[in-house]
């Protein structure tokens, strides 16, 4: 009994601090924890980890998709940057929109995006995904990608070279370090 009382008195001592924390943060949801961490220097460490393991989702949709596959393969070898191709959206951090988005494919693409766990980023690779490219006036393509996805990096080119894709990843890493990407800014 005495021990319990002692513990009780200890909590009584702790309580003011607890009160302060309670008043400012409630660790009820993951996003609350994230919001709290964002205010601490710990976030820099987290960002360092994230930016060095940008696993991307391979889902070739067009000509740029072939360049995306080649970028992940031996010659360009993105593994050295921690950029690893993944086949499942549930294991991926970055979705590369590599080609034309059509009205028919849009729901499936949205589904893939929703299946990816946070934090996640979008890279628009190629003119088609940025503004329609050569098919901008077609009856079945969608050309305003930014209306549907929070795009961080645009890589122009038709198709962009693998080096450009790697450069895009480097820019994304810089953005993450500077906390300027759209996930961290909450601009999604």
């Amino acid at each position: 009994m005495g021990e319990v009382e002692g513990a009780g008195s200890e909590t009584a001592k702790v309580r003011p601090i607890q009160k302060i924390i309670d008043a400012h943060v409630t660790f009820t949801t993951t996003s609350a924890i994230h919001d709290f961490l964002k205010k601490t220097p710990l976030q820099d460490l987290i960002n360092w980890g994230r930016k060095n393991s940008l696993w991307f989702l391979t889902q070739p949709m067009g000509c740029c998709g072939i360049e995306m596959i080649c970028t992940g393969a031996p010659h360009y070898d993105t593994d050295r940057f921690g950029i690893i191709p993944r086949c499942s959206p549930r294991q991926a951090d970055v979705m590369i929109i590599s080609g034309y988005i059509t009205k028919k494919y849009m729901p499936a693409l949205k589904l893939l995006w929703d299946q990816m766990p946070e934090p996640k980023w979008v890279i628009c690779m190629g003119d088609c995904s940025i503004s329609g490219g050569p098919f901008w006036e077609s009856y079945s393509t969608i050309i305003n990608t930014e209306k549907y996805f929070p795009v961080d990096i645009y890589i122009p080119g038709c198709p962009p070279r693998p080096e450009q894709l790697i450069q895009g990843f480097v820019e994304l890493q810089k953005k993450i370090t500077a906390k300027q990407d759209r996930t961290q800014k909450g601009d999604t």
Binding site: G62, Y100, T102, K104, Y105, F135, S138, S140, T141
Partner: peptide, 14 residues
């Protein structure tokens, strides 16, 4: 099929 149908035949006509 048709998830990346771009209407190339129509574009070529124009």
């Amino acid at each position: 099929m048709g998830f990346i149908h771009k209407g190339i035949e129509k574009i070529l006509e124009n």
